[in-house]
């Protein structure tokens, strides 16, 4: 067994750099596809849960509650093994994308719901009174205003999703964590625990940190913009209705 931080250990990690890069690639590509799925589900179920059709609201609620109140590892195993035993296996990568997408889709649905609900009722009414359909209201008027509410927690979900690719380990995925783990435990490669996990961590960090920063920046900018808008609005007071004597005609 190599001592954790010996030069030989680092050399061994370097020699197997392709393993790590492959892991990174798997993680990133899985994450990107899962994010697209999660976002689509989030938008769909977010719209369901704020819409007028009761059945769709119930469906959205059930989806969100089931997914948020069971572990992702369980969902992943279910997605993979249940399908394997049903002789309908879709492969590790696809199962991973599906499970991660569905899991984070539930959280994104809640983010989008909160974003829509943050918009004043008057905006919906104005849009409706002009004759915009529900979808048009959302697309032109509501969602563009929700972006600032939705964005920060959305990026949070994206970062979490990237980190959660590590769950693919449980079904034998080829993601970064799985690759790292089989590297350190492998017969021919084993032992370089310290450097391997550090490299793995640095790779995750290099992907996630810029995303978090970007979101933080954006949030800050929106806050500044809002302060300006609020200042502009509050310069014109909006008093409670005053019943006044009518002007003489």
């Amino acid at each position: 067994m190599l001592s954790a931080f010996s030069p030989e250990a680092w050399a061994r990690v370097w020699a197997f750099r392709d393993t790590f890069l492959l892991g990174l690639w798997t993680t990133v590509s899985t994450a990107v596809l899962a994010i697209l799925l999660a976002f689509s589900l989030g938008l769909l179920f977010g719209l369901f849960s704020t819409g007028k059709i009761r059945l769709l609201r119930v469906i959205a609620r059930v989806y969100v509650e089931i997914i948020q109140n069971t572990p992702i590892v369980l969902q992943l195993c279910f997605m993979y093994y249940a399908l394997v035993y049903a002789k309908r296996s879709i492969g590790i990568a696809a199962a991973g994308i599906l499970a991660l997408g569905i899991y984070h889709g539930a959280y994104m649905a809640e983010v989008i719901r909160a974003g829509i609900e943050a918009i004043p009722k008057g905006q919906f009414e104005a849009a409706q009174s002009q004759g915009f359909s529900y979808i048009q209201q959302m697309g032109y008027i509501i969602l563009p205003q929700s972006v600032k509410v939705i964005l920060p927690p959305m990026v949070n979900q994206v970062v979490n999703l990237i980190k959660n690719t590590s769950c693919l380990y449980i079904i034998g995925g080829a993601d970064l964590i799985s690759q790292t783990y089989s590297f350190v435990t492998g017969a021919s490669t084993g032992g370089a625990y310290g450097p391997a996990y550090i490299v793995c961590g640095v790779m995750f960090f290099c992907v996630c940190f810029p995303l978090s920063r970007l979101a933080g920046r954006w949030e800050e900018r929106l806050k500044v913009r809002d302060r300006r808008a609020v200042a502009a609005v509050s310069s014109g007071p909006i008093p409670r209705r005053v019943i006044r004597r009518g002007q003489k005609p």
């Binding site: 004043p120 008057g122 905006q123 009414e125 104005a126 409706q128 009174s129 002009q130 004759g131 915009f132 359909s133 008027i141 563009p144 205003q145 808008a229 909006i238 209705r241």
Partner: peptide, 21 residues
């Protein structure tokens, strides 16, 4: 209602409800 309202009616509200974005 969406079509009939669009073709026939407009509304002005107490709180303006302009689209701020």
């Amino acid at each position: 209602k969406t079509r009939v309202v669009r073709e026939n009616l407009s509304m002005v509200f107490q709180s303006f409800n302009l689209y701020p974005h």
